[in-house]
Design a protein around this nucleic acid. Structure first.
Lengths: 355, 355
DNA sequence: CACTCTAGTTAGGGGGCTTGCCTACAACGG
DNA sequence: CCGTTGTAGGCAAGCCCCCTAACTAGAGTG
């Protein structure tokens, strides 16, 4: 447990000041006093400390810009070089990299198309190196379109499931390039996190129906990843197929909807398939989700999932327990979720750095 | 966010002192200083405050009891009347009530057998009233052998599932009798909490196989109850039955293992059934659990579950993803879990009361 | 040029925690 | 019996954190 030291109070004051600057970008000491609720002398002291430690800087800007009379005040903000977070999304068709600063602004963005998943291992370090050279990167979040081992951060292949990105150890590749932690997670988990922020619902399930099949369970406001991080890898869940009980992924095989030579689902051809048969299989998955996770709502995402929303709803209406089914609402959800988490981690990292 | 006040430091000191007294029962101020890591004057001040507020009392006991030389010290402990938590387990065959004090000691225990579930509503208030009269009851946890609505605390019947205890609103019955919160949860969830404390595993699933069928999912160290509290109500999960895909509970119906006239499973007759058929059905449930929750281990509990452990393990060995299967190890797990939670809540309630 | 109004500083008070030293007092040994 | 030893607890001083209140600094305004 925490010790009751005076230093604790100081660090709480500093955290108040830093978080205010993160959300308001620039403030005078007087403004800081009102937004934080601290007294003016306390704020002045805190600002003095933070400037000295290099986290905060005088912007040089002064108040009177039509703001009225009175003495001029000095605007303070986070230091220029305070650092950013790197956000990387690895999909079969390419790698997207972004930098977020502590204000939540995206300060850089690149996309590298990839023809073959095998290129990922080669392209990834160069993408990262480019960003690291230009910014003070303090941490990194990675979204990958494959199951991620929770402890190692490695991409893992589950038997007979689509394996889109392929063998990769992002922590080993990226870790040495920057000085902070590298957090890797499955794209569906990140997407669910983004959807959670948008929906404001504490308990829901996210069904991701794309080239790969995924699912994330959000319980008590957090994505629950399970022991190895493989919670929600639903390819092998037994559900209703055209010929009886079948693993979910096999339903697509039986319908001839998997791309030959790869493990992925053929999304183009899928659009011509019978929605009722697909919805029946999806309904079986929803039923298992409702039974085991009891979501308030099931969110359907992925490139082709939402197009079946009506059929899925009809199917779910026949289930013994009712649940709301809605379409995902966040654009590029995986990147959004990874970015939000990166921002959050960056901010706490900075606050902790002031201690 | 918290404000950086000196009162915060004081309350941290008080919490240290209180928690030390909770785990050590009686301590002198000098001993408190060493166990808490605070200085003697700080401890003395804190003890003075806590005695004044009535939470702590001088026991009257003095040190020299063969402890050596030196000046006599005064032993302090939590005040006698500081309060207890009431723990109630409602099962089809009876109601058990316990009182736990802040040390974790069970200071009272009664069991009221019940012939018919309908008696519960009548017996419950008298059981509670008895305890409330004898103790300063500050809160209550209730374990019930039926699904519990998370928001209201009411027992709910799911279509066609065993409904053992029957209609009941423990919060309405018990709430008026005491001055603190009443927390109601399903017996399986409490059992999983007890098993969690014993196992020390953060992510596991608990399969409870008794007159009713239940399951709890522990993720990131907490029981995850879902939106309505119905997560893990597996009676309707589709699994492998003797004649193909069947809801879990129907497997027992098809095998003639449900007690006629009730919704419960006939445990006595079940022991004569083919373990392989049962294990196959259970294997289907385990597979869904592994897929959606990714537990490190599946714990098998309930009156008849562990007796099938071997058959269940054999069945699980055939699943595409492997998982450890072990038998539950905690005796009267529901009561144990509810008691542990009650103790925890009682302690935090007392700590908060000192603010 | 006095007045007004805001930003920031200074002074002082209250209080929490620590260190260091002191007193009280029981047991022990010569 | 009396000095020694060792522990419980108290007291004083010091540090420092936050607060309020009053003051200074400095730019507009009439």
């Amino acid at each position: 447990m925490t010790r009751p030291s005076q230093e604790l109070l100081r660090s709480i004051s500093d955290e108040h000041v830093l978080r205010s600057l993160m959300s308001e970008r620039k403030l005078t000491r007087a403004e800081l006093a009102t937004t934080t609720g601290l007294s003016k002398p306390t704020v002045s002291e805190s600002v003095r400390r933070l400037v000295e430690s290099g986290l905060v800087a005088d912007t040089g800007e002064r108040t009177p810009g039509g703001r009225g009379k009175g003495r001029v005040g000095s605007f303070y903000s986070l230091a220029e070089d305070i650092g950013v977070a790197l956000v990387i999304a690895i999909a079969p068709d390419g790698i997207t990299a972004e930098c977020v600063d502590a204000y939540g602004d995206v300060v850089g963005r690149t996309h590298h198309p990839i023809a073959d998943p095998a290129e990922v291992a080669a392209v990834l370090p160069s993408v990262a190196a480019e960003t690291v050279a230009a910014h003070n990167v303090r941490l990194c979040t990675v979204s990958a379109a494959d199951p991620v081992d929770r402890r190692t951060g490695r991409l893992v292949q589950l038997p007979d499931s689509p394996f889109l990105v392929g063998e990769l150890d992002p922590v080993a590749v990226l870790g040495p390039l920057l000085h902070g932690p590298v957090v890797v997670d499955n794209d569906v988990n990140w997407a669910a996190q983004a959807e959670h922020a948008a929906l404001g619902v504490a308990d829901f399930a996210y069904l991701f129906l794309d080239e790969g099949l995924g699912c994330a369970v959000v319980s008590d406001g957090e994505v629950r990843r399970g022991h190895s991080g493989l919670a929600g890898e639903i390819s092998h869940l037994i559900t209703a197929g055209p010929s009886g009980a079948t693993p979910f992924i096999e339903v697509f095989g039986e319908l001839g909807l998997r791309r030959p030579g790869t493990t992925a689902i053929d999304v183009a051809r899928l659009r011509t398939a019978d929605p009722v048969v697909l919805a029946r299989a999806i309904g079986g998955v929803v039923m298992a989700l409702v039974t085991l996770a009891d979501p308030e709502v099931v969110v359907i995402g992925g490139s082709w999932g939402p197009s079946l929303l009506g059929a899925i709803r009809d199917e779910c209406a026949r289930l013994p327990r009712q649940v709301d089914v809605v379409a995902a609402s966040v654009a590029s959800p995986s990147l959004t979720g990874a970015r939000a988490s990166a921002l959050d981690q960056l901010r706490t990292a900075l606050v902790t750095a002031s201690r």
